[in-house]
Amino acid sequence: MEFELPSVEELLGSWTLITGEVNTGKTDMLSRIMAAFAQGEHGRMALMDMAPELTRGVGGKLALPQGVHLKVCAPSIVAPRLTGKTPEEVQALARQNAANLATALEGYLAVPAEVLFINDVSLYLQAGDPAKLYEAMEATPTVVINGYLGTSLGGGEMGELERRRMEELAARCARVYRLA
């Protein structure tokens, strides 16, 4: 999928959100933005990959730019909608993820970076406390995030909560890219 990559200068000092359905290029766009940042001197950069172990046809693996050392916070999570068999099981898995992701956010807050990249924020928004996420973002001058905002994985209670929280996050961001 082709999209116009924003310049680093456009993104500096603000929050940017990349959203879309499954497999629309969100992770690729985030990866390309990270690579563009890697070409300059923008201070310490951190990557919080909220889905580092997911490979089953949903989402993409986020590769670190060549030769760049980023602080990486990669919590252990599961894909609730792929793993859970009942709505109750899906919700319980999302809550379990939220606890692991909150711990990763706490670790990040101990030494925040100048630039924060977050891959698959929707996994946190399924059940996590948005205030904890915003605390990490507010500690960072430049934040670039991607996450699922769509309909292909179904609705239900978790889908509505996640969608509402993603829309709230989008309203806080200076820039929102919605990929088809």
Rank of each mutant, 00 (worst) to 15 (best):
G107D: 11
T86M: 14
V143L: 14
E162G: 01
E88P: 01
K85E: 15
I118S: 03
M48P: 00
V143A: 14
A110N: 05
E138Q: 14
A170D: 04
E135Q: 12
A104G: 07
E138N: 14
V111Q: 09
Q91V: 06
A46D: 13
T103S: 09
A99K: 13
Y108S: 04
L101G: 00
S122R: 01
G40T: 14
A131V: 13
G43P: 13
A94N: 05
A136L: 04
M48L: 15
A36C: 08
M166V: 12
A94K: 01
L105Q: 03
A174S: 12
A131T: 12
E135M: 07
R165H: 13
N97Y: 03
A74K: 08
R172T: 10
A102V: 01
N97V: 02
E89N: 00
S76L: 10
D120G: 06
V68R: 13
R164D: 13
L125I: 03
L153H: 09
T140F: 06
A98H: 01
M45T: 07
H42L: 04
P75F: 11
A94M: 05
Y108C: 04
A92N: 07
A171W: 01
E157D: 15
A131D: 15
T103P: 00
M48H: 00
A174R: 14
V143P: 13
A102N: 05
R172M: 12
T83V: 09
V58G: 00
V121C: 12
D129E: 15
A74Y: 07
L64P: 09
A36Q: 13
N119C: 04
E167D: 02
A171Y: 05
C73F: 14
R165K: 06
A139K: 13
H42K: 11
A38M: 01
G60D: 08
G159T: 04
A104L: 08
D129H: 05
